[in-house]
Nucleic acid binder design. Structure first.
Lengths: 211, 211
DNA sequence: TGTACATCAGTGAACGCGCGTTCACTGATGTAC
DNA sequence: TGTACATCAGTGAACGCGCGTTCACTGATGTAC
């Protein structure tokens, strides 16, 4: 943050926070028109700078898009962590909160969500993005681990398998029915109810749905 | 199909099957560069016609993309129907085949899959596309219904709920781990194994995993 | 504290390019009689 | 069966436009002394 903002709302020669502004512009444009729906020039116009300015911060459009996805994974991880809340009041209840947070993110941040999961950004050759994506998944995996720890010794499933099942179910429901944009499919129940029932049945399948 | 193809491989003034050729071109380009990765002009070039020719068959790029998605849903429904095979040899076994077919489609036809589920085509003002999408889901719902019919009377879940759970789980696994393109995430097991285990646990949760 | 200088971040003009779209046209096909 | 005509499907040239990208530049900021 530079201190070039003037009292009257204008800015000086330097924008001060152009990188962040470009990412916000991209998000807004993605929300309106999908991950393909923005250009470098348009993002610059949105941020109120000349078309050459973005090149000081991003090599090209793809790098801007990847930065948005990266920030999305970071916020996603933070939101999931908050929802899990260290497994309080009980791991079982916190686990449901985690699921709700997953759906809430997809609904309230469709632009991040689509940059993260649908923009087709290759993860191999982008270690930073892959790591951020794994940090988000780690929240879910750790929560699953905590939940499993409370199960009877003979009935504990493999952590990774269970975490992947929960992730896939949440992701499927969010993608198909819980999106915040026009591609959402209608459903005779809320995505939250559908997910909660699915998780409940899954846990019953493991033989541990009681607590 | 017109009979204007010449023996030497050239074609006459009329292409004969341009609409289909443009859709194949779009598919190929989507596969290479994602749903946003093709232009009307490029598809025309691929099909070997002038840039004005596509306008005889599609109003614009979006209409071409929607046609591809429509055809995708039709093929998807056909593939699922074949896999279900009327519930033979047993509904339980046929159900696993259905799941495998879902994953197989996502892997072998990533271009269709992404046009159908990730291109952000709004369904609400495209009744034809919506109907095709529902025909595909109906295959899964009918299969679920047949599977439920074999369950003990007291343990039958609501058909729609169960079908949606299975759909979401399959779709989540396919989208995250089973795609045929560069955005696939690595996994220490096959998507098929993961889905099969998930369905098994889910059915156990319903209390009916035996047959 | 003041000054000189280096560095940084954005300007604005320019360019070539491919896209979307329109248009009058024309070659090929289908059909009425 | 032949002929005239209507219709269809693709041509190719043209246009305006916005994009991506480069460039020498310049205003603002940071820092050494």
């Amino acid at each position: 943050m530079r201190w070039t903002k003037h009292g009257d709302g204008t800015r000086g020669y330097h924008h001060g926070n152009l990188k962040e502004a470009l990412m916000r512009a991209a998000l807004e444009l993605i929300r309106e028109k999908g991950p393909a729906g923005f250009t470098f020039a348009e993002a610059a116009r949105w941020a109120g700078v000349s078309p050459a300015a973005p090149y000081r911060h991003f090599r090209d459009r793809d790098e801007l898009l990847a930065s948005v996805a990266l920030q999305g994974f970071e916020r996603f991880a933070a939101m999931l962590t908050t929802a899990w809340n260290g497994g309080r009041p009980t791991p079982r209840q916190a686990f449901d909160q985690l699921g709700k947070a997953y759906l809430a993110f997809a609904r309230t941040e469709p632009a991040y969500y689509s940059a993260m999961f649908e923009a087709g950004i290759p993860l191999h050759n982008n270690p930073e993005l892959l790591a951020a994506s794994e940090r988000a998944f780690a929240v879910l995996r750790d929560a699953t681990e905590a939940l499993i720890a409370g199960m009877p010794a003979g009935k504990r499933p493999p952590v990774l398998m269970m975490a992947l099942h929960i992730w896939a179910l949440s992701h499927g429901i969010a993608s198909l029915f819980g999106r915040g944009d026009a591609a959402r499919r209608a459903l005779p129940m809320s995505p939250e109810e559908l997910l909660e029932a699915g998780v409940l049945l899954y846990l019953q399948g493991l033989g541990v749905a009681k607590n």
